[in-house]
Design a protein around this nucleic acid. Structure first.
Lengths: 227, 227
DNA sequence: AAGTGGTCTAGACCACAAA
DNA sequence: TTGTGGTCTAGACCACTTG
């Protein structure tokens, strides 16, 4: 009895070796199942896995073909910053910088799809690894989700508090480079204009805006993954 | 008859709503299948999908529990640069800058796990969107995979040629920020020291090094995705 | 030892898109 | 209309892990 992962591996080997060249239509599931010696359901699972990862294009009636221009997908894990630091075997520390209700700039309203310019809770904080600045967290927060009374960010970062209390939201994510401004120079102790890696994340809960955050990392930070 | 995606959606709703709180063990598959009115195989497929995305932790005998500190995963598509430009409804153009055999610096040898410092093919090129600099491609290439005779990068970029001819390799990927050096200033027509978003990618074919490339994007570039 | 998820199978029907 | 992938089902057995 062959596992679908075995079948998948064999099929992938055919693709990589060129036995099934890019663009070519491969036999139907039923035939392949017979050839590989498994049930069609097993074959289906294997091929679907390859299709999910961009190796194959499948269409009902049209059959299955090897992707000609495969769109490679990279998966990044977006962890809690404390865990991220601890994974590097460093000691995490955290310092709250500001926490107050403020009227947000238009860009933030647009990201959160806030029509009215209601006041939002602005939280800025610094994360440190082994005592050195690691990341600046600059956040706008819908106070309905984290009332100042309930959520105190003096000890636990907003980053971590939200992961624990407002889990499983949806949203957008962007990676980019930005120069260090005065505030970042002060917190990260880097040169003015230094190239910094940054992440913008905006999250919603069933259409209701929760938070918009910019994480700016100290110079030299790299976000890495395997393909 | 319920589809596994319907079941998945219902289960996800329970997680998001807090009906199944973080850290809590949920009923066994067989019971859930009965409750949801589907076969266990269908239930399994739905739950497995949620586990793959980090919503659930599943263990044989241990049961299934809602992840307490979910590791959110972001999926980025790494397209061919030409397609990336054309998706933005811009016109793509390409200019080869250099293409010659050179002894690579140690950092490149290390990335490619080349013990001997054999000569590699170095290809640098500029991609343009609507005539404006979009991205600089700086590549070290194992000549065994792309002999100068076979692979001519005057018209088709190495980026695209490799996707077509050396498909389906594995490797590493990193995103980071870097300041513009003299070469980048000249090609991207940006200010010296400007913050630029960059991608390092190193690929192997069954352990054999193929290529190591740095893509550096013009100022303002953002790599975006949904969560 | 026992209970849970992981998977396989065979057969069936459905949904979609190409002919 | 027809052929392909997409999915469901019921039952079975296996593999891992916990007690």
């Amino acid at each position: 009895m062959k596992s679908w992962q075995t079948v998948r591996a064999e099929a992938l080997a055919r693709i990589r070796s060129g036995a099934w060249p890019p663009g070519e239509t491969i036999p139907r599931e039923a035939d392949l199942a017979e050839e590989f010696g498994c049930a069609r359901a097993t074959m289906n699972r294997a091929m679907q896995s390859l299709a999910d990862e961009g190796y194959l294009d499948r269409r009902r009636k049209g059959g299955t073909r090897v992707a000609a221009m495969p769109v490679r997908k990279a998966v990044f894990e977006i962890p809690v910053i404390r865990q991220q630091v601890e994974q590097r075997r460093s000691t995490h520390a955290y310092r709250l910088v500001t926490d107050r209700l403020t009227t947000p700039p238009e860009a933030v309203c647009a990201a959160l799809k806030f029509g009215s310019r209601m006041q939002l809770r602005r939280v800025t904080a610094l994360h440190l690894a082994d005592g050195k600045p690691f990341c600046v967290e600059d956040r706008w927060l819908n106070p309905a989700f984290a009332p100042p009374g309930e959520a105190d960010f003096a000890e636990v970062s907003a980053n971590e508090w939200l992961v624990r209390h407002v889990t499983y939201s949806t949203g957008t994510l962007a990676f980019y480079a930005r120069p260090a401004n005065a505030a970042l120079v002060r917190l990260l102790k880097c040169a003015h204009g230094a190239s910094l890696f940054a992440i913008d994340r905006t999250t919603f809960d069933a259409g209701t805006p929760i938070t918009s955050v910019t994480l700016t990392y100290a110079p030299g930070y790299r976000m890495e993954t395997l393909m």
